[in-house]
Design a protein around this nucleic acid. Structure first.
Length: 288
DNA sequence: GCCGGTT
DNA sequence: AACCGGCAACGCCAA
DNA sequence: TTGGCG
C-alpha cells in the first residue's frame, strides 16, 4: 500500500483506553472497502474527540481551516455553508488525523441530495428489556418492510440498540420518506402498544422498545455502518445477518481492535444494492 | 486539533 | 505566550 | 424566555 500523504500528529495519543490515533487510522484503512459505500459522496456529520472520547467531544458538519484538502465539501441547497464530504478512501487517514471518531452520513448522495436512498429505523430498548424483546421488534420491523416490498438490513449500532435499514431508489423527497417512516412505526406501535412506543418523550417508559423514525429527516443522521463509536471500549456499528441474532442472548458487540475478523466474513449486506425499491405509498401501508 | 480572538 | 470558545440543530420540557 | 437534555 502506498504511503499515506496524511501526516498523523501524535500517533500514539490514546482516543480510547488503549486505542491510539494510529490505531484509528489503521482501522479506517482496513475498513475502507466496507465503509466507503456508506460514507462516500454524502454530506457528513463527524464526531471529533481530539483528546479522546472522555475529553471534549463535538460535532462538525462544515469544513474548517486546517483540515486536509482530502476532506472535501458539498454545497447543499438552502444551506449557507458547504457540508463535509469525502469521495475516496484517501480521505480516511485525514479523518483519523482530526480525531473523527464517528461518521454520520446523510441518507442521500450528492447526485440526489433531496431524495433519500434509504430509511433507518432505530430500535431502542427500554432498560430492563431482554434481547429477545429487541430481537422480536427487529424481526417485526423486517416483516412490515417485506410486506411493503422493501428490503430490511440489520446492523448493531455499537450502543444498546439495533438499526434496521431499508434501501430506497432515490425518488421520493425527504418529507415524504419521513412521513412514511413515521406512519410505519406508528402502525407497528398501534398493533402492539404494550411492546412499542414511537414517542420520544415516553421512550423511557413501561418496558417498551422505542421505534425511532426521526433519523429520516434531511439533516438528521444515523451512524454509518462500520463507524467507530465514541464510547467505552471503542465499539463499532456493524452490519449483521438476521440469522446471526437468532440465538443471541445479548446485542452482539464488535470493537475496533477486533474488527479484522468481521472483515473476513462474507458481507451480510451483499444484496443491499439490489434491494433498492421506490418508497411505497402510504396507502400500501394502510392496507397491510 | 486547530484557528482566531482575548488577556 | 497563555488561555479560551467554537466546531450541529431540533423538539420538548423544566426552571 | 431561556437553558439543558435526549
Amino acid at each position: 500500500m502506498a504511503a499515506s500523504p496524511v501526516r498523523l500528529t501524535n500517533p500514539d495519543k490514546l482516543l480510547w483506553r488503549d486505542i491510539s490515533k494510529a490505531d484509528l487510522r489503521d482501522y479506517y484503512e482496513a475498513a475502507a472497502t466496507r465503509l466507503m459505500p456508506f460514507v462516500a459522496n454524502r454530506p457528513l456529520t463527524i464526531i471529533r474527540a481530539p483528546d479522546g472520547f472522555k475529553g471534549e467531544v463535538f460535532y462538525q458538519r462544515h469544513a474548517m481551516k486546517g483540515m486536509s484538502k482530502l476532506i472535501g465539501t458539498v454545497k447543499v441547497k438552502g444551506e449557507p455553508k458547504p457540508y463535509l464530504m469525502i469521495t475516496s478512501a484517501e480521505a480516511l487517514p485525514a479523518l483519523a488525523q482530526i480525531a473523527a471518531v464517528e461518521i454520520h452520513p446523510w441518507a442521500s448522495t450528492a447526485s440526489a441530495l433531496e431524495q433519500p436512498d434509504y430509511l433507518t429505523f432505530d430500535l431502542d430498548p427500554d432498560k430492563g428489556l431482554s434481547f429477545a424483546d429487541l430481537r422480536r421488534a427487529a424481526f417485526d420491523m423486517r416483516d412490515y418492510l417485506h410486506r411493503l416490498g422493501l428490503g430490511a438490513f440489520l446492523k448493531v449500532t455499537g450502543g444498546k440498540g439495533l438499526h434496521v435499514v431499508a434501501p430506497l431508489q432515490p425518488r421520493a423527497e425527504w418529507e415524504e420518506a419521513k412521513e412514511f417512516a413515521r406512519a410505519l412505526v406508528e402502525a407497528m406501535a398501534a398493533d402492539k402498544p404494550d411492546a412499542y412506543t414511537t414517542n420520544v418523550r415516553k421512550a423511557r417508559r413501561k418496558g417498551r422498545v422505542f421505534l425511532d423514525y426521526l433519523r429520516n429527516g434531511r439533516t438528521a443522521t444515523a451512524v454509518a455502518a462500520w463507524s467507530p463509536r465514541a464510547r467505552e471500549g471503542a465499539p463499532i456499528a456493524v452490519p449483521i445477518a438476521w440469522s446471526f441474532i437468532e440465538k443471541k442472548r445479548a446485542v452482539p458487540r464488535f470493537t475496533l481492535d477486533r474488527a479484522a475478523a468481521a472483515f473476513k466474513t462474507a458481507d451480510p449486506w451483499k444484496d443491499y444494492e439490489r434491494a433498492c425499491r421506490p418508497l411505497p405509498s402510504l396507502e400500501a401501508l394502510k392496507k397491510l
